[in-house]
Amino acid sequence: MTAQKLLTNIAFYALVVVIVVFSVFPFYYAIVTSFSTGTELFKVNYWPKVFDWGNYESVLGGRNFVRSIWNSVFIATTTVVFALFLAVTASYALARVRFRGRGLLLMMILAVSMFPQIAVLAGLFELVRFLGIFNTPYAMIMSYVIFTLPFTVWVLTTFMRDLPVEIEEAAIVDGATPWIIITKVFLPLLWPALVTTGLLAFIGAWNEFLFALTFTSSETTRTVPVAIGLLSGASQQEIPWGPIMAASVIVTVPLIILVLIFQRKIVAGLTAGGVKG
């Protein structure tokens, strides 16, 4: 019995190790690569042979990389705040108020998240130019609504629907307006779901590439993925693997830290709302 249990334990931990190695290895390899330069890059190394910070220096000392990080932070944060604000009010209406066509509306919101990015690119580009926000962060903030909003509305709606009726009834009896009900009654209860959806929206906005490339025309307004996509070698055909890997490590670390801090909340938030059928 104990032998069998030991065996099961070993098998279990072996599985854990396999999962972790499989997930982490590419990132680890990116770190290894980010420390090598020149011809060393073209050799397969399993362990970092040298610690050459040159790639990091060249990325961070590069013209606008730090600026790009700030752009990304600003755009992603604003997108999240904007999406959450619109989603909290909308999902209150969708979850707590009965009206005709509610199910249809939810399906339509889901339909928006089916739009292929490429299908709306040209139309969005026209809109961005019409509003005069081309090459400003607002172009990205506006266009990111298309993929952050349906998701946040969706998760928050399911979350709110499952909250008991009683908590609202008391407030209604006291004559509270819907706005008061949202801010005073629901918001405090919504935190786990807000953190989850907020983080998901943040990662989505942080990682987006196509819109960010299309709607900017100067180095100072670019976001991080675009900046990485545009890192260049010393000539037309040369790909700077070292700096690309260094930049990737730099932009991924904050996300990993965020995930580490919020990982409990993410699961809690999803448990509470997101995936309930």
Binding site: V112, A122, G123
Partner: peptide
């Protein structure tokens, strides 16, 4: 409540119309 719901939904629907529905219709 339904009236309030309408006003709560309006900004989101407007946002989705402009950034999603309109470009799709253009396409």
């Amino acid at each position: 409540r339904q009236r309030a719901a309408f006003w709560f939904l309006a900004p989101m629907l407007a946002a989705l119309f402009f950034v999603a529905a309109w470009p799709l219709l253009r396409t």
